[in-house]
Nucleic acid binder design. Structure first.
Lengths: 187, 187
DNA sequence: GGGCAATGAGTCAACATGTCTCGTAGTATG
DNA sequence: CATACTACGAGACATGTTGACTCATTGCCC
């Protein structure tokens, strides 16, 4: 794994990451093994070892491909913007791509006490963005008493994950309205 | 596995279930294998096979030992009762016993599409109990417009799981108050 | 005490894992 | 175009796990 610019290196890396993502979505993090990824990507098993000597690293890279594109660029008034953002997240959580990552992160938080950096980073990103959005609205006099950022994130996102993953149901708009009501005291 | 009353049968079954629960809490559902359970329980590997020919059945029995003791016997006024119940749940979710089951259920809901009966049963139990509690309060004139039961459950429990599992933090009382506010329109 | 069933220990093939080696083929230089 | 380089695929190998069996032993019930 020397030359990061070698087309062969880039090609096989991409195909392995794609295979790992598909396996994660279809069969869960336990299926992201050297053997399964090699089969699916059409590469040799040794190649997977050369790129990621430990299976956990491969899973981590497969998840951390894209930064979660939520809560960027808040707009006033905050309520309709927040509603639209939550709507997008709820819809994305109905798809396996995001739902698989969410559940895998919960699993890793509980039992893979290593590899906390990616999870911590994503969570802090959400916290910061939400905090910035609510601070903006507070300055504009839209609301009072926002909660502390991590609690805010938990109130807004927790029910969406619970509903889509455990209950395997859809998220009605009235649910999002109630969550927004709970997130702050609106004027 | 013939005589369910044989003390030997009961004894080894209990020790295996205890071992399975400990393994689930300490290392996750992936660790609940015939071999690991046999080692930990101090029984032969073949004995585990005789009781549960498939590892998934063992995991299922290990989780379904106790019915979740939440939201039983609602009391009026509903708000303080609901707050106390949520407080108990949040505190229990800080312990590995309940948190492990919650995360495992999410994992199974996503990827082990079989074995839905236990999960569905527990979820419906929570829904029904919460519905009964809110119906009681509605009759007493305490509130208007309760949400439909599954959405109610998601709003109340989702944030607790998100906060304790993903964020690995504690649940402040103010968070519970906000969730209760979101659950219904109180008078 | 005697019949009986559950158990513990062991064997066995099949498979997955982690680590090598080696010949091949694609790549970047000159 | 020719050469040195290097990532690759295929395979070998020891090791550990899994699932399924056999069989002697031991605890249990009548």
């Amino acid at each position: 794994m020397a030359d990061t610019q070698d087309p062969r290196f880039v090609r096989s890396r991409e195909s392995m990451l794609t295979a790992a993502r598909e396996l994660l979505q279809d069969e869960g993090p336990a299926a992201v093994t050297h053997q399964r990824v090699a089969q699916r990507a059409g590469v040799g098993r040794a190649t997977v070892y050369r790129h990621w000597s430990h299976p956990g690293d491969l899973l981590q890279d497969a998840m951390s491909a894209a930064d979660v594109p939520f809560f960027r660029q808040p707009r006033l008034p905050l309520r309709p913007w927040l509603l639209a953002e939550l709507r997008r997240i709820a819809d994305e959580l109905a798809l396996p791509a995001l739902a698989s990552i969410a559940v895998t992160l919960m699993y890793q938080a509980r039992w893979q006490t290593t590899a906390t950096s990616y999870r911590d980073h994503q969570l802090q990103l959400l916290d910061h963005r939400l905090q910035a959005a609510f601070a903006l609205a507070a300055d504009a006099g839209e609301l009072d008493e926002p909660l502390q950022p991590p609690v805010l994130t938990a109130i807004l996102l927790g029910p969406l994950i619970f509903r889509t993953t455990l209950q395997e149901g859809t998220v009605p708009d009235v649910m999002l309205e109630r969550l927004i009501d709970a997130a702050a005291k609106w004027r």
